[in-house]
Design a binder for these strands. Sequence first.
DNA 1: GCTTCATGTTTACAAACGTAATCGTTTCAC
DNA 2: GTGAAACGATTACGTTTGTAAACATGAAGC
Lengths: 130, 130
Amino acid sequence: MARKSDDSPERISDAEHAIMEALWDHDGAASAQEIYDTVGTARDWSLATVKTLLSRLVTKQAIATQPDGRRFLYSPVIARADYVGGESRRLVDKLFGGRAASLVAHLAESEALSVDDLTEIEALLKELKQ
Amino acid sequence: MARKSDDSPERISDAEHAIMEALWDHDGAASAQEIYDTVGTARDWSLATVKTLLSRLVTKQAIATQPDGRRFLYSPVIARADYVGGESRRLVDKLFGGRAASLVAHLAESEALSVDDLTEIEALLKELKQ
DNA sequence: GCTTCATGTTTACAAACGTAATCGTTTCAC
DNA sequence: GTGAAACGATTACGTTTGTAAACATGAAGC
């Protein structure tokens, strides 16, 4: 049976990402209006803009729609953890030759990590290795 | 005395970033041809494309030119460490609410880090904290 | 001196993005 | 049943990006 072109996980733009965050945040499917009420007003976008972004996300298959009366409810298709993982990997590949440890080293050296952070991470690592 | 618009550190695109990497890699200033010889051929870009990207980077003030006979030599204005730091911060802000430790936690939990990585990071942290 | 090659500059053009206005249709309040 | 409101769909339009071709100019060989 032939694979049906569901390949490349289309890239999500910054503006689109803001919409995704709202959807991930929202418990269950949300209407365009609801999304507008949170992200739209916060970022000072018009309702029309929010709708455009939702459409593009549907096209990119990042979110799905389910009819609700004469409107749609939107919900994320991809999990936030997956998205975050993908983006993190992209960065690591692009800037650190794929070595995540290099990223951590950089964050630490550039004092992007506080002493508290370091302690927290140490504890985390210990737990993960145990 | 009025500040003279050297503000926002213009965003560098993916293609432009490849050029930057070549420049950072290159010891000292490089000519367009030299950049083409490395990145261009590797990414299968025409010399014209490389020149366009170099021009855009000059406009964005990410690189500087110095005349060398009837041509230019290009060199990075921004240090790689700064760029890397900025991009890393952007990601952390966008996806982890600004908490770098969360990024590390995510990498660890999503097994983006091998046991060796974990060990390496642990050693690194110990050193940084001491 | 004329041709050719190297090099920067200008122009091109499609796709993606940010940001929306307009259109067509349905529904709800009168 | 008529007009306004709510929605999704379509169209719009400027900017950025990827990818380059065309152009202008100066140097170098013959």
